[in-house]
Write a protein that binds this DNA or RNA. Sequence first.
DNA 1: CTTCAATGCGTTAGTCAGACACAAAGTAGT
DNA 2: ACTACTTTGTGTCTGACTAACGCATTGAAG
Lengths: 247, 247
Amino acid sequence: MPRLSQKIGVYQEYLPHLSVDCVVFGFNENGLKVLLLKMKHREEWALPGGFVGQDETVEAAATRVLQERTGLEQVFLQQFHVFSDPNRSEGNSASSGDKQAAAWLNQRFITLGFYALVPFDKVKPQPDAISEACTWWDVEAVGSLLIDHNLILKKALEAMRLQLRYQPLGLNLLPAKFTMPQLQKLYEIILGQTLDRRNFQRKMMDYGILHRLEERKTGVAHKAPYYYKFNKQRYKQALKEGLEGGW
Amino acid sequence: MPRLSQKIGVYQEYLPHLSVDCVVFGFNENGLKVLLLKMKHREEWALPGGFVGQDETVEAAATRVLQERTGLEQVFLQQFHVFSDPNRSEGNSASSGDKQAAAWLNQRFITLGFYALVPFDKVKPQPDAISEACTWWDVEAVGSLLIDHNLILKKALEAMRLQLRYQPLGLNLLPAKFTMPQLQKLYEIILGQTLDRRNFQRKMMDYGILHRLEERKTGVAHKAPYYYKFNKQRYKQALKEGLEGGW
DNA sequence: CTTCAATGCGTTAGTCAGACACAAAGTAGT
DNA sequence: ACTACTTTGTGTCTGACTAACGCATTGAAG
């Protein structure tokens, strides 16, 4: 019975009771987006998720899930919370025809929440075997999600906005060369509020993680903005040490 | 992972591959302390840890571990990181006589890091079944710990100091009534730097989470300081909303 | 009752964020 | 080509907050 053992083998590759869920954020001019999956035979949409291999770090597992859904190799990934309510999957028993699959899916799962920041326009959302769709949703327009995924999304948003206060952001979301208005738009969309153009520029430049190029953007209406790029060394340093003094 | 705060022979009560480790911080006049266990037949000290029950949240598991080691019921507990390097327990195979125990302990473990803030003088450290000692260590004096526990401790310190910037702290570490110098000492010890007495007082009072009592401390040399207590309602509100504006 | 260390309260200078003004640049329409 | 309009680059002002420090008060010790 090679088929059966193969199937069993698939799940045996993973650690039981443990899953990862990824809140994948992207942004375009219309707002902050999150990548969601529509499961077959289910009403609700869900966060892309997966399991942890026997010999894999949880970061690697999340990266793998992300690679499969978005095609992206290098993304900014951050673990932010562990969700472990024993009843979190209440009322969501799996109804697969495959008994092995059903048994696996009906376990109690403790899930590790990750959020990722990805370049919206470089992502080609791809559904997995058990999904019929995989698309971007406006964060504001997300309805009722599977299990506790609404809670996971909410926590991810909080964690990301908090992190924005003391860590730089943008290296993994913007092109190598970008303009100040682009960067500001990113911050505004993530924070959900408008910011003063001039104060924003001063603050960002004072952080010392940006370098202005001589080159200006061409082909745009009105005054051509300068291009900027991140000083990656200082950027990484700021990631470690934080941006603001505090005490 | 030869740390075990539970009885032998009941491993099926726990989820496999998953553990919790608690970095328990306390403080006294001499500095910031961390609670460590000395395992039997082992050189290194270790963080108190345990496993997650089949029907238990990870927070409940950490709380249970803490209760067993410190006797405390209500503590400030915070999850801060998941440690999942497949080789993290490299070179630390369990050598228990109990084969069942050895099999359990030699699993690969993904551990959930929690840090706790507890009132130093109310704790009665108690070793578990497989430990010969459980005592406070000065954070600065901690030597080489079991497995990756030095890394866990380092990450916990970073997470706690970061959290201090935008959340109030002290409710769970200080007596109900305390003086301003006491509170300042706490902050100085946790942050690892001295602070200006007068500016500290102003800043804390401006947060609006403190209430000064009429009562003054008695029996002290020199001028008697006022007692303060936390306004618990505002304190909890500040925990949720954060202390500083940012953007 | 003098000394002394610690506390309570206040003052000043420097820094930073927020709000806004104005000049420069580039496109589009006439 | 000229004007109108929009967007960007830079500077200024004000209020709030932080850091640094001065000084009087308190209470125990000698």
